[in-house]
Design a protein around this nucleic acid. Structure first.
Lengths: 200, 200
DNA sequence: ATTTGTGGATGACGAATGTCACATGACGTC
DNA sequence: GACGTCATGTGACATTCGTCATCCACAAAT
């Protein structure tokens, strides 16, 4: 009997996944969490074989959860189930020792099999991501990321400068750099691109 | 036996919801669709009592689906299940005669009951939305919306002008109007606000 | 002790943006 | 036909943005 913990902030999906997995005879959903922090606590308590987790959650993301589990529950395998086909996410997930990375777009039937495969020591990566160009590196440095995040929310250079304790000119320099690196035409497009790649 | 059709583009959720609802003795999932268009076709074929649908889907959104069903399958009740707590969406949904509007954040257990209630002629609106301030009107006109959509993607005024066959000055005028109406400081913030409200 | 690198600041310039007042023409209404 | 009004343009102006060359301070490397 494979003990499964599910971490997912969308109640609807959490409940539905749990119901679906309970139909499998060799799986048992021993705990549910609606964010990473809760999942970590429950993992310590129930010691699940496999953790199925979303990425974007309040309090603690699935990526942070994976990293923490690698440390505290090294025997527990982690499968990420997310909406986002972003190279940055996949890379960070693999770095955190994640064994599975599935997209919510994929048919639900795949999940049970992925759990079994990962439980047996295998790896399951969504085929859309396993291929080629998904190893694009994040070309931005920390400052550029910060500045771009704020710019993407509509703050002016002056506002950003105030928040980050930089001069306005410096902010413009970083933005200019980021725009160039991303091949964008302006800050808006740059922010869009970076977000879409999972770099923000 | 209540006949249910589910339309949802995330395969994972679609499958999981179907599995969960099939556990209910008085419900039967007669068809599944991954977009509105497909759902409309299947609805004509299976004549479901209740359609459970997401909003943001390719080909045809859940809101468009609801409007079309109101016309072609007036007896079919529609329940929207979406991530987005946006006033614009709820308003449009109600205008399309939708009987239920639930958030994916809500516990999954609610769904079966919502289906029963709606099937009996009732209405189910997520409590977070049923309250007050959710009737904020969209102050934008069609042109302003178009222009803002493109501006939000990082196009310059000149690009937008070309796409919409307007002069650049006119584009700037519309943007200026939109920025003013939304109380924003620039086009980026304006686009962010409008999107968040579900007006784009 | 000099070189090199890095993070940040400055100043200047042209381009894009935001604002406003006003013009034009199409359409409906009285 | 005179009158609003609605969509679109125009021109002018101040501000913000994007770019680039250059400079400064400080730390690490040699």
């Amino acid at each position: 009997m494979i003990k499964v913990l599910i971490a997912e902030d969308q109640g609807m999906l959490l409940g539905a996944l749990a119901a679906m997995l309970e139909l499998e005879e060799d799986l048992s959903v021993v705990a549910r969490a609606s964010n990473g922090k809760e999942a970590l606590k429950l993992a310590a308590e129930f010691n699940p074989d496999v953790v199925v987790t979303d990425i974007e959650m309040p309090a603690m993301t699935g990526l942070e959860l994976a990293a923490a589990l690698k440390d505290k529950n090294p025997a527990t395998r982690v499968i990420i189930v997310t909406t986002f086909a972003r190279p940055g996410y996949l890379r960070r997930a693999l770095d955190a020792g994640v064994k599975g990375y599935l997209l919510k777009d994929a048919p639900a039937e795949q999940l049970a099999n992925a759990i079994r495969k990962v439980h047996q020591g295998g790896k399951v990566i969504a085929p859309e991501l396993a291929t080629e160009a998904w190893d694009t590196e994040d070309p931005l440095n920390e400052r550029e990321r910060q500045v771009l995040r704020l710019a993407g929310d509509g703050l002016t250079s002056a506002d950003i400068a105030k928040q980050l304790f930089l001069s306005e000119g410096t902010v413009r320099n970083y933005l200019s750099e980021a725009i160039g690196k991303l091949g964008a035409g302006n800050r808006i497009e740059a922010a869009r691109i970076a977000r879409q790649k999972g770099w923000l």
